[in-house]
Structures are given as C-alpha cells and as structure tokens.
Amino acid sequence: MAEVDKDKLYQFLLRMGDNTLILGHRVSEWCGHSPVLEEDIALANTALDLIGQTQMWLGYAGEVQGEGKSADDLAFLRDAWDFRNVLLVELPNGDFGRTMMRQFLYDAWSSIMLGHLQKSTDERIAAIAAKASKEAAYHVERSSGTVVGLGDGTEESHNRMQAALDYLWPYVGEMFASDEIDLAMAAAGIAPDPANLRDEYDALVGRVLDEATLAIPAGNYVHKGGRDGRMHTEHLGHLLCEMQWLQRAYPGCEW
C-alpha cells in the first residue's frame, strides 16, 4: 500500500461509517411503526446490518486515528459538525415511500462502492467491504423491488414515489462529489474516486426507475456539505439528540 496521510484515511473511514450509522439509526426509527409486520422486520434487519457495518468502519477509524477511541466513542461522543455522512442519509424518513426511495438511492451507491472497495490496497478495508457487500447486495435487491412495486403500483403509490424522488434527487450528487481526500485515497489505491462511479450508478438507478415508471426530475442543483462537514441539515442535530442521549446524560454508562 502506498503511503497515505493518516488524517485523510481517518476522514475517509468516518465518511463510510457515518453514512451507515446515520442511515441505520434513521431506518431503526421505523421499528414498530411500519405499514405491515413483514416490512417492519425487514427495515429493522436492514438497520441492524447498517449498524454492524458501522462497527467495522468506525472501529477501524478509531484505530487509524490512534487516540484510543472505540466505534462507540466515535458514534456517541462527537457533535454534528464532526459527522461526515452525506446529507441524503440524515433526511427525515417521511412516509414509507420516501424511506424506501432513500434506501434505494443509497443502496445503489453502496453496492457499487463496496464492490470497488473489495479491491482496496488496504487489506482491512477490502475485508470489511467483502463482508458488507453481501448485505448491500441483499438490501438493493429489496429496495429496488419495492421502488418498482410502489412506483408502478396504484396512482396513489406512484404519486408518492415520484414526490419522494423529486425531493431526494438533489441530494444524490453529493455521493459523487470528489475532493482532495478522495483523490488521495484513489492515488493510494485505497478507494475509487467517487466521481468515476457515476456512470455505473446512473445505469443501475435509471434501469430501476424506468421499470418503476418514475422520472428523474430536471435540474442540476446538488445539496452538499455533509461529507466534508461544512454544513449538515438541521435534521442531524435532532437525530443525534436522540441517538446520543444516554451517553450524554450518563457518561461512560455500560451494560
């Protein structure tokens, strides 16, 4: 493996782990509230996989950082401005349709990204990606099927899915916006330049949305600021209030 700046590698690992952590928490909010029991179980299982992946990413991030922090420390003791997830994953769940559309838009990126990361020059990253990509493949199979079922469903479900896509689409571009951290990772063979994944993503997403009879909205505006920490949405702080409450109220609490 080529020499790489430790702080950049740490930032890259935070981006991977914060995506799965924040989305995992969001999806877990459905537990006990889904439209039917099967979907409730499916969403809870998806959230569980994402939290499991978080332990691997943030566990490694803590080791690279070298300050003795565990995955739990990084998850529960950082404030909003230190998170590096894309804005897409922190957006509120909305209705079931919007949750599933967000899941599909993320799963499509994740399944492609993890496929490339299996060839990482960093053996640990390659191993985490190999483990996580099996789960991601299963997730995208389900979320794409649900997007097609609801998009090409009743008038009501179609309209809701189109509204979800209109709302979420401006957040997709951030997953492919490269910066100097990505370029350093790409140069060291650790991770692909995200900008290079866009064609593969558009092909997969385009095929599914076609089948779902949904149209990608016009316009090129992209909401950014999550993966570089410049500006998260107001929603992240509220999410952290709930997720981090126990460790904030009872520091160091264990069970």
Binding site: L48, D49, L50, I51, G52, Q53, Q55, M56, K131, A132, E135
Partner: peptide, 8 residues
Amino acid sequence: TPTYSGCP
C-alpha cells in the same frame, strides 16, 4: 467469523 455484521 460473524454471520451478519450486525447479528446480535
């Protein structure tokens, strides 16, 4: 080895 990464 874990079965699923988040399996309790």
